[in-house]
Amino acid sequence: MSGLIDVHAHWLPAELFTLPAGAAFGAMHDRDGELYLDDIPLSIATSAMSDVAAIRKDMDTKGIDLRVLSAPPFAFPLGDSGQDVAYAEAFNAALTRVVDDADGALAGLGLVALGDPAVVTAQLEALASTPLISGVAIPPLVGRTSLDTGVLRHVLAEATRLDLAVLVHPMQLPRAEWQSYYLANLIGNPVETATAVAGLLLGGVKAELPGLRICFVHGGGCAPWLLGRWTHAWKARPDVRRASQTPPETGFGELFFDTVTHDARQLGLLQEVAGANRIACGSDYPFDMAEPDPGRFALEHGPGHDALVRAAEEFLGRTPERERR
């Protein structure tokens, strides 16, 4: 059975491989058909990142009817320089052209320059007026702040006001203790995501923004396994519950997650703590850490075809009720 929606896939046009000024890594470039990030091999063909035909072929092979494209995480514009603003606008314009030409097979999540709140608002308003652009992709951290404070908190408030979806994707931030064994990805990415989920729930942000449609990739990182610990601390410590009126387990079931867990048991736990109606199919295309057969994995181990599609449609705001509005 097809009809699946992949809410987590990446695309970047070759002209933007330079990356924005504040990027944590050097530019992307091609070496004999393979894509590198600075001197780091990404273990994927260069065409897989930017070639729409390659993306469509992969969709056909994997049983994906609609794929939602967002920028790779190292392309997040983390400042408000003129270059950051121009980079986000160039990506959004290119993404709009791609989804417009895809006959309904592709949708998009745009970028905003994560600095000046006024610029954020203007760029989100532009995304909200663009057909087939369903929302925005953001990192879980900007500097020392997460979703409960600063510019990311502003993004969530404005996305809620504009009825835009928000996809949160970790950036694989380098740390000295994670230099070996790809640990910046294997440990760093899940920890970044869990930090953002905790900030959203313990900071009371989701309760303040009940209309926020937000999805955390990689099955929510460490968050499903930490939820019990957070809830215990919320009950035991006044400083943990000072900003939230309800325990984190209450708000957890109002978030969306993708299926990229790489393990059926972990996806099962995610369904238990989040609910079967909050999980959408994801692929993480085209990276080496992508789910090799995302449709099969999601259908065999997830909540079922109809639930996966409903969750994706609800997250993206593609339900008949919202489209009538």
Rank of each mutant, 00 (worst) to 15 (best):
Y181Q: 15
V205M: 09
L212Y: 11
T231S: 15
N185W: 04
L212T: 05
P248D: 10
G268D: 09
K206T: 00
K235P: 00
H218R: 15
G268I: 10
V205A: 07
N189D: 13
L270M: 08
T246N: 08
G199M: 05
T250M: 11
Q179N: 09
A196Y: 04
L212I: 04
S180T: 15
L226W: 11
M171D: 05
H169C: 08
L201Q: 07
P247V: 12
H169L: 04
L212P: 09
N185L: 11
M171V: 14
A196G: 06
L270Q: 08
A184H: 14
T231N: 13
P190T: 00
W178N: 14
P170A: 11
L173H: 13
G253Q: 14
S180L: 14
K206W: 02
L227C: 04
A207M: 02
R175A: 12
Q266D: 11
L202Q: 03
K235M: 09
T246I: 04
E249Q: 11
N189F: 10
L226C: 13
Y182I: 09
P174L: 08
R229H: 13
E208P: 05
P224T: 02
G199K: 03
L227I: 05
Q266N: 12
R242T: 07
D258G: 10
R237W: 03
T231Q: 14
D258R: 10
G211W: 08
A184W: 06
T259L: 02
E272I: 10
E254P: 03
G228P: 09
G228A: 13
P247M: 10
W178S: 06
V260Y: 00
H169Y: 07
A236I: 00
T246G: 07
R242D: 10
A207T: 03
T250W: 07
H218L: 03
L186V: 02
L227T: 06
L202I: 00
R265W: 11
V240C: 12
Q179H: 03
T259S: 14
P190M: 05
L186H: 01
M171L: 14
A264I: 01
V191C: 05
